[in-house]
Design a protein around this nucleic acid. Structure first.
Length: 262
DNA sequence: ATGGTGGGTTGCCCA
């Protein structure tokens, strides 16, 4: 089974890239972030034509998340949640969760607030939002559940995930309070699957559009696929698929993909 | 040196 997470930065602009990614990899489940569209503008029919059904939580202009599932897997995929209880502004579409009863798998797809700048109002919002996430995960899932939490976390967990740690020191996406949030989530019996299998430096999932950051590999690893410990023995491979980032008019994020024996 | 690029909506906000 292949599962992936991708911040597409506008699904309408990125639809051609999304369709070719799905045709190439035929992932079973794909979490999308930053749709930047309302539910009624979501491309249900184009995705259905290539065999995907979608659970969507859209929003006008900002945010927006979806979970796509391949139809021929013959597995049902039930919506579990699309609002984060206790979030500072529940109007913002940043979470969608499904349950797959046939393989007893839970998937939670997130778009964590960016935070703008350390000390800003948006930064405080991000930390509060993450507190609500921690409570939601703790109360919604047993510690021994088969759980995958993936998405754009807007947090680079360690300096290994930063192209220039000196330049980024104490900046947003990298600051200690944000990293503590991330590590408290891991404390709920979760593993950063990509890092567990890929210990080397220089591996990133996001590169700024500016100053040829991608060509120079000036990136951060802020998109993650966390798996609960019971799933770790089933993880075969985790990688960042850089090819879509090299296309014309790319998203600034690359997809992260996990292969599981499921 | 406080820039720059891209997306969405609108005369600016957000990443």
């Amino acid at each position: 089974m292949l599962i992936a997470s991708w911040n597409v930065n506008s699904i309408s602009v990125r639809l051609p890239h999304l369709l070719s990614f799905l045709e190439q990899w035929k992932v079973d489940h794909l979490g999308l972030q930053e749709l930047k569209c309302t539910d009624d503008k979501f491309p249900y029919s184009q995705l259905s034509e290539i065999g995907y059904s979608s659970h969507v939580k859209g929003e006008k202009t900002y945010n927006g998340v979806a979970l796509l599932s391949r139809n021929n897997s013959e597995q049902s995929c039930e919506l579990f949640a699309d609002v984060l209880p206790g979030a500072p502004d529940p109007q913002q579409s940043r979470l969608i969760a499904v349950h797959l009863p046939d393989c007893d798998l839970n998937i939670l797809n997130l778009y964590v607030p960016n935070g703008s700048a350390v000390g800003s109002e948006k930064y405080e919002y991000k930390l509060k939002w993450f507190e609500a996430l921690l409570s939601f995960v703790e109360t919604s899932y047993r510690r021994d559940a088969r759980l995958i939490i993936m998405g754009d976390f807007n947090i680079a967990p360690t300096d290994l995930d930063v192209h220039d740690p000196e330049l980024w020191k104490d900046q947003v996406l990298v600051s200690q309070p944000e990293r503590e949030c991330f590590s408290r989530l891991l404390d709920l019996n979760l593993v950063d699957s990509f890092r567990a299998l890929n210990p080397e430096a220089g591996l990133f999932s996001w590169w700024d559009y500016r100053q040829m950051a991608f060509r120079r590999n000036h990136g951060l690893r802020i998109d993650h696929i966390l798996v609960s410990r019971p799933l770790m023995p089933l993880v075969k491979k985790v990688w960042i698929e850089k090819a879509p980032r090299k296309l014309e008019k790319p998203s600034d994020h690359a997809p992260v993909v996990i292969e599981l024996d499921l």
